[in-house]
Amino acid sequence: MLTCKQFLEELADYLDGELAEEVRRELDGHLAECPNCWVIVDTTKKTLQIYKGMEARPLPPELHARLMKALQRKMTQPPER
């Protein structure tokens, strides 16, 4: 019988669907009987869903402007020999 600690060690691969069928079945068996691990799986899935939709914050305009200025300088300078 799998312990919760053993279950958690496999959690990332379990969520990413990267486990052999046999191991997966064993984990499913543990999950059906362990409410705590069920909650952990559910809340970790939600964690990943929320982060996947997280857009990066737009750059402050002055930071973007400095970047573009540096690039323009680079683009107009003759290539080094």
Binding site: E9, L15, T43, T44, K46, Y51
Partner: peptide, 20 residues
Amino acid sequence: VKSRLLRARLQLRDKLTRYF
């Protein structure tokens, strides 16, 4: 990568629980 990812996911889940 896998071992750090697992620990990162679990720690974030823990931290977000107080909000969610």
